[in-house]
């Protein structure tokens, strides 16, 4: 049974999540990937403080469409590989009060430590699930840095409903990715010796 999360979400709601929990997210969140993370670290952006507090950032570069009235919609919107944000993610959580990153592939020890310290989580959306995930994006409310960063790298402000994801790194120091890596390592070493 999926746990429902409504954004904005406070520390208590996030601390109640554990690795392996399936969640459905509703509310307003933002997208952001390489350029956005770099920008957020190099600048202390006032608008970003307002937008990011107690919400989630989705590592996603969508395929979008604009209608005659100038309104945007998401056509395809699966997650991108999160590990590229490992140098930035913990600091972005801390500075802007974000409660989760959503992406794919998992993140490393720095982000896991930040999750534990600040009360944040990493959520895994399924890579390539572009059409199903785009359907849970109900509205595009705004977009920032579209001109400078381009469509995939811009920060899109989106309203989602029952957006599905899996907790793979929780705020209690547990990472499913680290577990799978360690399990596969033993087999890997055996195969190399063969």
């Amino acid at each position: 049974m999926a746990k429902k999360i409504h954004l904005p979400a406070g520390e208590d709601a996030i601390r109640s999540l554990h690795c392996g929990d399936i969640v459905e997210i509703s509310g307003v969140m933002v997208t952001g990937r390489d350029n956005v993370h770099k920008y957020l670290i190099e600048n202390d952006d006032e608008m970003a403080h307002r937008l990011l507090k107690d919400t989630f950032i989705y590592h996603c570069g969508p395929v979008v469409k604009q209608n005659d009235k100038g309104e945007w919609s998401f056509v395809a919107a699966g997650p991108t590989t999160s590990i590229r944000e490992e140098p930035y993610q913990g600091k972005v959580f801390e500075r802007y009060g974000l409660r989760a990153a959503i992406g794919k592939g998992g993140m490393g020890p720095k982000t896991l430590a930040a999750c534990e310290q600040l009360g944040a989580v990493y959520l895994h959306a399924i890579g390539g699930l572009a059409v199903l995930l785009a359907r849970s994006v109900k509205r595009v409310l705004d977009v920032h840095w579209l001109e400078e960063f381009g469509t995939p790298e811009a920060m899109w402000v989106i309203e989602v409903e029952d957006f599905p994801a899996i907790v793979t790194m929780d705020s209690h120091g547990k990472s499913l990715h680290a577990e799978i890596l360690e399990k596969s390592r033993a087999q890997y070493e055996m195969l190399l010796k063969k």
Binding site: C60, G61, V63, V75, L129, A130, V131
Partner: peptide, 21 residues
């Protein structure tokens, strides 16, 4: 199962299977 459902939805609606084309 979700991967298969997504691929079927993409084909039916003629939208990209993955956003990273």
């Amino acid at each position: 199962e979700m991967m298969i459902a997504n691929a079927e939805a993409a084909a039916t609606s003629s939208t990209p299977t993955c956003q990273d084309t």
